[in-house]
Design a protein around this nucleic acid. Structure first.
Lengths: 205, 205
DNA sequence: CTAGATAGTGACTGATTACTATCTTTCGAG
DNA sequence: CTCGAAAGATAGTAATCAGTCACTATCTAG
């Protein structure tokens, strides 16, 4: 049972983050203990603290890991898509696909948003969402310039509701305990969103 | 500091639930201890267990309290409103107003949804959301019969996104730490939602 | 006024937790 | 092959938490 221990530090940290995210797919983040994280990696609990100064540091690393990957995935999906509304759709689907691949992610991020004030990990989550929103706003403004959006549309609200849309799917999957099905429900959700923002022109069923 | 102790049991349970909801407005539900709940009520920790069999039972009572009130508020708001879309709007605003009055509620419910499997309180939250969804579906079907909705609209998705819409506002308020402002942002959010579902007829800016 | 019932106190317990020493094993450079 | 450094194991510690228990204060029915 002891294939490869003694990993270099970077790799051990990476494995730790992966273990945390994987465990968040099944357990409540708040009750996740360093002992369970360690056991999952096949390592003793004390070993974790050679690589992380505290448990909080583990959460920080996990949030950073997620932020990098989700932003990269979403950026890659929108890359080279000329039409801004199509880019939004691509981002939406990429975001949802990422969640489906990592079911622990929503719970982890929500868990960090739960403690109200000033944890470092919580701050990172807020920053991630802020960057995300700004990117959405940019695309929405461009779509507006091209006349693709309803007159009088509140762009701020539209950006917020894009995230709310994903959030609704996630919530649904938390209720139904069916994270995989989120991908199937995503297109209908985005269609609904698009109808909410786009100009009333040439719409069909 | 010892005004009135020795409350009757029902009232003590009520106070407990109120204390829990109030504390969830400021602290993470998962780290809320029976000791802090008791201290807030001006009672010792052991006293709680005369009225509740376990901490889990406290969460159950809190969720039940919320479920009753939110459903009553939302039903009252829709009561007597003839037009189904107007009823949906009234429900939306009533829901948001309730959250603004009880900022701890979203965090509490989310916290219960976090532990994946089979806690009684978690089950109650799922039931609440299910009842809520069914009520929404009823209104959406009625609106469809009256020809107020887009052709080919996915009613299931529309019901989910109604909740997602509220969820988006809540998320925003969690990020900005501004639960009161949720009321101000609500109308724009619902307008966006309505444009997503309604028939393209006679729309204006 | 009294007695039984109800509500609350204070002190305790066993389990769990993040975190830390001290010792041992493994790895890789020279 | 050797040796120092990196990584892990083992065995702790102090703190915290839900829940218990024996006792006391308070209320209320008769």
């Amino acid at each position: 049972m002891s294939q490869r221990q003694h990993l270099p530090a970077d790799e051990r940290r990476e494995r730790t983050v992966e273990a945390v995210i994987e465990l968040c797919g099944r357990e409540e983040p708040a009750t996740l203990t360093t002992g369970r994280i360690a056991r999952r990696m096949g390592v003793t609990q004390g070993a974790l603290f050679r690589h992380f100064a505290s448990k909080e540091a583990i959460w920080e690393a996990a949030v950073t890991w997620i932020a990098e990957r989700v932003m990269a995935r979403v950026a890659a999906a929108a890359e080279g898509v000329e039409d801004p509304l199509a880019a939004l759709e691509a981002m939406f689907l990429a975001h949802v696909a990422f969640i489906a691949e990592h079911p622990g992610v929503p719970r982890l991020l929500m868990g960090q948003l739960q403690h109200p004030r000033p944890t470092a990990a919580g701050r990172l989550v807020r920053e991630l969402l802020e960057r995300y929103r700004r990117r959405l706003l940019g695309l929405l403004e461009e779509a507006g310039r091209r006349g693709q959006l309803r007159a009088g549309l509140d762009l701020e609200a539209a950006a917020t509701q894009f995230i709310g849309c994903v959030q609704g799917l996630v919530l649904q999957s938390l209720i139904a305990d069916d994270v995989a099905g989120i991908v199937d429900r995503a297109p209908a959700a985005f269609e609904l969103y698009r109808h909410g923002i786009r100009a009333d022109a040439g719409g069909d069923a």
